[in-house]
Design a protein around this nucleic acid. Structure first.
Lengths: 205, 205
DNA sequence: ACGTTCATGGTACGTTCGTACCACAAAAAT
DNA sequence: ATTTTTGTGGTACGAACGTACCATGAACGT
C-alpha cells in the first residue's frame, strides 16, 4: 500500500477544510467537492475518510467545538491563572463573541448547526448540547466560587446567572454577525452587566 | 382571462406556505415544489407570482417579520394598555421566546435568515436589521419611560439594557430551539433579570 | 365579435450534488 | 515471490432543483 497515513490526522485536516469553506460560503451550499478542493485532495478521498456527507458534517461540528474549547482555555490562561472569577467569566464570554475571523466562523457555523439540529433528526443527537452545557457548567462553577467569596450581588442564583450571561453573549454574537451591532458595543453591553453582577469590581472599583 | 386575482393576497399566501414548510423541514431543503404543494397550487404559479426563488425567500423574510410584529403588538395590547413599562417589556421579550409552534417557527426561520445574510450578499441588504432595530428602539423607549418614572435601577443605560435584554432573549430562544433549555426555565431567567432591572416590581413587590 | 391580456397547467432542460463503481500502484503480510 | 490490504484517482449514475418554454381557456377592452 502507499505510505501508511494517520487517519485521525487526515480527518481533522478535512474537517478544518470544511470549517474554512463553510465560514466563507455558508454551511449550506458547501458540497463535498468544495471541501475536497479546499483540502487540496480529490473528491474520492473525502469519501474515503468520511463515507457520507452526514458523517463529515457531524465530525465538523465536533471539530468546531473542540477548537473553540482550546481557544477558550488558552484565553482564560492568558487572562491570568489567579485573576479571579470575574476575569475568568469575562474572558470566556468575550471569546465567544465574533470579533476576529476565527471566532466569527465559529459563531456562524455553530448557529448554522443549531438551526440544522432543530429540524434534522440525525444532528439533534447527543454531541450538540454538550458544548453549551459544558460552558454553562463552567460559568456556573465560577459564579459559585464568586458567591462564596462574597463578590456576587446578593440574591444571585449562579446557574440562572450563567444561563443568562451565556444567552446574552450568544445573542450579541448574532447581532454582530448580522451587522446590527459592533463588537465593541457588544463587549460594552456584556461588561456592563458583569459590573452589576460583580459589585465593586467594576470600572470605578 | 380567468377571474382576476389579488396579487398581493396571493403572494402573502404563498409566502406563508413557505414559512410553514420551512418551519417543519428547515429553510434549507425547501424547494419551490414544496412551497407549491404546501400552498395547494402548481409549481408554475409560484414562478408566476415570484419570478425567482431569491425573491420568494426575501418576501418570506418580510412576511415573517410582519407577522411577528402583529403578534407582538397584539400581545402587548392583551397585557393591558396602562400596565406600565415593566409589563410591556416583559410581554415583548416573552413573545420572542419559542414557546408555541408559531413562535418556534419564527425564531427558527429568523435565525436561519440571519445565518444566510451573513454569507449571501443579496440577503444582507437593508430589510434584515430593520426588525431587530425596531424592537430595540421600542424596548429602549419603554426603559427610558421607566427611568423617568424612577422605576429603573440606578445607573441603568436604557439603550444598553435594551440591547442586553433582547440579546438574552434571542440567546435563550436558541437554547430552547436546540432542546438545551425548557421555555419555562428561559422565562424564569428572563424575569429574574427584569426583577433586578426593575427593583420593587419583582415577585415580592 | 374579436383580439388581447391574464391566470394557470404541464413539461423539458441544464446543472449540481451525493454516492457508487472500477482501476491501479505501493506497501505490508505470508 | 505472491497475495492481500490500503491509499488514491477518475468517472458515471440517479435524483433533485431552479428555471425556461409552450400551450390554453377564460375574461376584459374596444
Amino acid at each position: 500500500m502507499p505510505k501508511r497515513v494517520d487517519h485521525e490526522e487526515r480527518r481533522t485536516a478535512i474537517a478544518r477544510a470544511l470549517i474554512r469553506v463553510a465560514g466563507r460560503r455558508g454551511l449550506h451550499r458547501v458540497g463535498m467537492r468544495d471541501v475536497a478542493a479546499e483540502a487540496g485532495i480529490s473528491l474520492r478521498l473525502v469519501q474515503y475518510y468520511f463515507e457520507t456527507k452526514e458523517k463529515l458534517l457531524l465530525h465538523g461540528l465536533r471539530q468546531l467545538a473542540a477548537d473553540f474549547g482550546e481557544r477558550a482555555t488558552a484565553r482564560r490562561r492568558a487572562a491570568g491563572e489567579g485573576a479571579g472569577p470575574r476575569a475568568a467569566v469575562e474572558a470566556l464570554l468575550l471569546e465567544s463573541l465574533p470579533t476576529d475571523e476565527e471566532s466569527r466562523t465559529f459563531h456562524l457555523l455553530f448557529t448554522s448547526y443549531a438551526v440544522l439540529a432543530a429540524t434534522d433528526e440525525a444532528l439533534a443527537a447527543q454531541p450538540f448540547t454538550d458544548a453549551p452545557d459544558a460552558a454553562e457548567n463552567a460559568v456556573t462553577h465560577l459564579l459559585e466560587q464568586a458567591l462564596g467569596e462574597g463578590l456576587l450581588t446578593p440574591g444571585a442564583d449562579p446557574r440562572r446567572e450563567a444561563a443568562g450571561l451565556l444567552a446574552m453573549a450568544a445573542g450579541l454574537g448574532s447581532g454582530i454577525l448580522a451587522g446590527q451591532r459592533s463588537p465593541h458595543d457588544a463587549a460594552g453591553v456584556l461588561r456592563h452587566h458583569l459590573d452589576r453582577l460583580f459589585p465593586g469590581t467594576g470600572p470605578e472599583g
